[in-house]
Computed example of a mutant assay.
Amino acid sequence: MRVTLAEEIMLLSLDDESGQAKDRWTVGWIVAGGLLLELALAERVRVDGNRVEVVDTSSTGDALLDDRLEAIAAWAGSARAATVAAWLRKDQLKSIEATLAGLCARGIVTEERHRALGLFPVRRFPEADGTVERELRERLNRVVLEDAEPDLRTAGLIGLLHGARLHRLAFPGEPRKRVEPRMAAVAEGQWAAEAVQDTIRATQVAIMAATAAASAAAAAAAVS
């Protein structure tokens, strides 16, 4: 079963039993980044000087990607600063919802709703079919732990995870010092066209800037 990069990232972030997302704030950014990268790989968008440009509005054949492509096209045509960072900031929550809906529709996860303490609505997405995630983790293990040559999409996924410092989502049982050098090498390798590499770099910069700003705000709040 073929899933998008964004859906793969979402699967890695979801606890298989509880269905709760780990690192949800940062994951929102790279889920949106994964959709943007997928569209770049499909030659529907490109990043030029950090600006997002739609170059082809024809269908990709994937409902999730087509929906985000339509949204990007409408936004980029009217936004004064149609940068990667601005898009990720705007779309992260919608991207998560759209990605979870896609996983549910495929029967990979199920949605459960209840109220914590009888008051607060809680949604969980426990895994229903573990085949996709198992194959995904095996693919990541081959590239990072066994030094296999990555295909284009796997290299892109590793680049996003490395840029967001989310190594533990992909390799929860491995020491960071074992996986980080190889992930960095894959992320920095010349495995894709320059336009695709530009999308990865711009996404990484946007995520790092947002994470730094959030950390600074949290530190300031703690001091005050």
Rank of each mutant, 00 (worst) to 15 (best):
A213M: 12
I9R: 10
T99E: 10
R124M: 06
L169W: 11
A86I: 00
R123K: 14
I207D: 01
Q92E: 10
T57I: 08
M1E: 13
G163K: 02
G118P: 12
T154H: 00
G107S: 11
S224R: 01
R142Q: 07
R153N: 07
S78Q: 14
L37G: 02
L119C: 10
F125M: 08
A32T: 15
A219E: 07
L93W: 13
G19V: 04
E149W: 03
E38A: 08
N141Y: 12
N50R: 10
R201S: 03
D147L: 08
E149F: 07
G61C: 11
A105C: 10
V179F: 07
D62A: 14
G77V: 04
G163H: 04
R51P: 00
D129M: 07
R153T: 11
S215Q: 13
G173H: 09
R165E: 13
L145D: 11
R113L: 09
D23W: 12
A184G: 10
R178P: 03
D15R: 05
G130H: 09
R139W: 05
L11R: 08
L11I: 11
L69Y: 00
L65I: 03
L145K: 13
E174S: 15
L5G: 01
S18Y: 05
A128T: 15
L64F: 05
R137S: 05
D147V: 07
F171T: 03
A187G: 03
D67M: 12
L160R: 03
M1C: 06
A82F: 03
E111C: 12
W29H: 12
E138W: 06
R115I: 05
V55Y: 10
K22G: 09
S215I: 12
G130Y: 08
A98E: 15
S59Q: 15
G28Y: 14
P172D: 02
A170R: 00
A63F: 04
A82K: 04
V47G: 01
R137W: 02
A81I: 02
A105L: 10
L103I: 11
L166E: 09
S95C: 07
L36S: 06
A185R: 13
W191R: 13
R123L: 11
N141R: 11
Q204G: 00
M1L: 06
Q20W: 08
E146M: 13
L145P: 02
A216G: 13
Q204S: 02
L5W: 01
R115L: 12
A81Q: 08
Q204I: 13
G189F: 02
Q190C: 01
L64G: 01
Q190I: 00
W25H: 06
G159W: 10
V47A: 00
P181Y: 08
A155Q: 09
P172H: 08
Q20A: 15
L69D: 04
A101N: 07
R124Q: 15
K90N: 08
A86Y: 03
G156L: 11
T203G: 03
D48F: 01
E70K: 05
D151P: 07
R142D: 10
L39C: 11
E188K: 02
R123G: 07
Q197M: 10
E127P: 01
P126K: 04
H162R: 08
Q190L: 03
Q92Y: 03
A219F: 14
A192V: 06
L152Q: 14
